[in-house]
Design a protein around this nucleic acid. Sequence first.
DNA 1: CGCTATTTGTTCAGCGATTGAATTATTTGC
DNA 2: GCAAATAATTCAATCGCTGAACAAATAGCG
Lengths: 412, 412
Amino acid sequence: MSLTHAPAGAVRQGSLRELNLALVLGRIAAADRPPSRADLATATGLTRATVSAVVEDLLAGQLVSESEPAPRAGAGRPARGLVLADQGPAGLGLEVNVDYLAVCVVDLAGQVRHRTVHRADLRPVAPADALAQLVEIAGTARDVAASEGLTLVGAALAVPGLVDDDGLVRLAPNLGWRDVPVPALLAAHPPLVEQVPGVPALMVDNEANLAALGELHARPPGPASFLHISGEVGIGAGIVLDGALFRGVRGWSGEIGHLPVHPEGRPCRCGGQGCLEQYAGQEAIVTAAGLTRTELPADTATARLAELAEAGDPDALRALHDAGTALGVAVAGVVNLLDLDTVVLGGGYAALAPWLCPPVLAEIASRVLTAAWSPVTVRPSRLGAEAAAVGAAGSVARRIVAQPAGWLGRSG
Amino acid sequence: MSLTHAPAGAVRQGSLRELNLALVLGRIAAADRPPSRADLATATGLTRATVSAVVEDLLAGQLVSESEPAPRAGAGRPARGLVLADQGPAGLGLEVNVDYLAVCVVDLAGQVRHRTVHRADLRPVAPADALAQLVEIAGTARDVAASEGLTLVGAALAVPGLVDDDGLVRLAPNLGWRDVPVPALLAAHPPLVEQVPGVPALMVDNEANLAALGELHARPPGPASFLHISGEVGIGAGIVLDGALFRGVRGWSGEIGHLPVHPEGRPCRCGGQGCLEQYAGQEAIVTAAGLTRTELPADTATARLAELAEAGDPDALRALHDAGTALGVAVAGVVNLLDLDTVVLGGGYAALAPWLCPPVLAEIASRVLTAAWSPVTVRPSRLGAEAAAVGAAGSVARRIVAQPAGWLGRSG
DNA sequence: CGCTATTTGTTCAGCGATTGAATTATTTGC
DNA sequence: GCAAATAATTCAATCGCTGAACAAATAGCG
C-alpha cells in the first residue's frame, strides 16, 4: 500500500485527476505542518492552478479542511493551511484475540478517535458468537463515530492466525479456530460500513501483519522498511518493505516463529525441531523463568516477568537473556536475508524490550555481515498491544488517502 | 522493476501518453502471440483509436515492428501482428567473476543476441585491469550488436560481492576486491552505451540478484515471486517479490549463506557460527565428498561431483544429501518467513539439483507450516551459469519496455 | 498614511491526449 | 459478386493541465 498508486489498466483522461488527487492528498498527509496550495505546487511540480482545482475537489469531498497555516516571515498575502479533515471518512479496526475483543476507529490523519477493549476468554466461544459480540461493540463505535461526523468506509479484522485471500481463517491455533469463513459469518449481520468504490468492506488479516502496519503509520513516521515482531504465544512477524506490507504469495508471510534456531533441538508443534517459538515464545520464557502458569491472561504473565526482571530476579533475567539470544539468532538471519536496518519488538515483547534488546543486538553484531558498515536498530513498538487493531483501522483510512477518487464518487 | 510504472511526481498531460506507451508495450512483450491493435485495445481497455496512435509512436521509435499476426478463423480484414523489434535498443550485460569475464547483449524481446565468455583467473588481476579487459570485450560486442541494428542503451555489471547504491563494490571476498569504485574506473574508458533518459548508463549489482532477474525474465515466464539461490563458493540469494527484485534497504539483501543452520556449529568467516555456507557451500560439499581441491575452477569441481553422484559414489551422494539438508533447513526458514511457493537452485547448484532437491523438499515438508495446504516447488535454474550476465543485460532491456518514453525522446 | 514589493490564490484561453462514432479497408462465406 | 465481419483510421468533442495575467492580502518603508 504505497502512497503513489500505479494505474493497473488504461490511463484515461480521468485517471490524471485521480492520480493528482492522490498525489496532493498524500503530500498533505505526509507534511508535518499544514501546507499552503503554493507549497503543494512546488512540492508536487504541478502548477498552482491545478493544485487549486484539485484542492477544491478535496475540500468539497470532506477529505481536507483549511486551518491556520505555518507561520511565515516577510511580506505577501497570507497562505491558507490545509490539513486532513477530522470529519469525513474513517476506518474501522477489529480484533479477535485469545483474551480480548478490540474495536477502534481511526481517521484520515491516523488519529485514534474511538477505542473499546472487551476482555474475555474467547477460546471457549464459538467463532460465530465471538464475531457477533464484536459486531455489537463495533455498532456502538460506529454510532459514536457518526456523532463526531465520521463515516466508516471499511473494516479490517485482525486475527492471530493464518488467513486466506478471501478472508477464510485457515487456522488460529491459540484461538481454536479452523476454517472459519469470517466474511460469510459477518454477512449475517447488518453492514457496519458504507460501501465506497476501491475500499473493500472487510479485510481479514493476520494480527502480526496489521500490527506492523500500525507501526508503519505511527507518528512521527519511522523508516519505510522494517521487521515487526509480535511476541505472543506464537511469534509472528510483519514485514514492511518500502512502505508496503509484504504478504507473500498466499498472504502467509511472517512465520518467523518456526525459523530453526537449534535444528536438532526441541520438537515443535509445527513438526520441525528447534523452532524459535520453543525458545522465545511466551510460554518458553515464562517456564524458563520458573513462573507457574496459573496466571492465564498473557499480558499478566508478561507484566509479572517485567516486574521480576526489574527487581533483578536472576531466573527471570537469565530466561530473558536466553530468549533474546534465540530471537537474535533468528533476527540476524532475517536481517542478512532482507537487509533491513530496523527491527521493532511488538506485542508481548514491547514490555520486555529492555532485557531482550541487548542479546538480540549482540547476535546481530556477531552474525550480520554488513552490520559493520551500517548499524541495525532494535527498538520496542510505539503502539504496544494496541497495534493490531489500530493498524487495522489505519490501513482502511490510509486507503482513502492513497485512492481518494473512490470516496469522491469517481470510478476508482 | 514492475511492468507498470507508478509516476512519482506530478502527473501532467504528457504522462498520460508515457503511461499508455508503457502499458501497450508491456502487453506486446507479455503476449505469447503477436497481438493486433484490436487485441491490445480490448486487453488494455483503451479505445482502438488510442491504441493506433500509441502504436504509431512505438513503430516510429523502433520499439515494435509489424509481423504475421496470430491466425484467425472467419471473415474480416486481417489483423497486423505486433512484436517487439529485433532492432533498436538493447541492453549490455557484464560480469566479473572469479574465473571468467562475460559479456552479453540482450534485445527487447529478451533474446540473447551476442555472448562472449573469457576464461581467466581474475583473482591475481587488479580491479582496474580486469575492468579494462571487460571493456575491450564489450567494445567488440557493441560493434557486433550495431551491425545487427542494435543500440546499447545501458549496461549492468554483475559482481560476486556487496555493492553500494552508487556502484562501489564494498567487498567481493572471493575476487579479492574491497572498496572498488567501479563507475569511476569505467569512466576512464570511452563510453560503451548511448545515453537515454530514464536508463542509467551503468548499474552495478550483486551476481545473485542479477541471476534472479535473469530467471524472472526467462521464457516461458515463471512465477512472479520466488527465491533464487546461487550456490558458488559463497551462497547468495536473489529475492523476487511480485515481479520485482527486492534489494533491501542498502541493496545488500540475499545473504542467505549466513543463515544459521547449526548455531553452535562450525565458526564462519563472517564471525558467526554454524552458517549455511559452512555446510552447503561449494567448498564444504567438495571436502565432504572427499575430493581434493587440486582442481581450481569451480565449475570443474561441480561437474566432477555430478559425475561421481551419477555413478553412485556413496561419499558424493552423502555429501550432497547433507548439503541439501542444511540448505533445506535454511530454505524452510525463508519460505516460512516470506511465504514463497517457488525456490530456484541456480549457479553451481543447478547441475547438482537432482541430488539437492529431495532433501531440500524433505526439510520444507517437515518444517513449513503451510506446506500442507499449498506445495512448494524446488527446481533448477533454466539459465544456469549464464544467468547473471544475461539477467544483467535483460534488466537494461526490460527498463526500456517498462519506460519507453525516455527512448522515444520524451521526458521520462 | 500611502506606496511598493511580495506572496497567495484564481481566472481563462490554449493545448495535448483520449473518446466515441463514423468511415475506410480487407477478407470470408454464400 | 455481394453481404457480413473484423481491422484500422479519421475527426469533432471533451477533459484536465499549463502558463500568463490578474486579484487579494500582507509587511516594510518613508
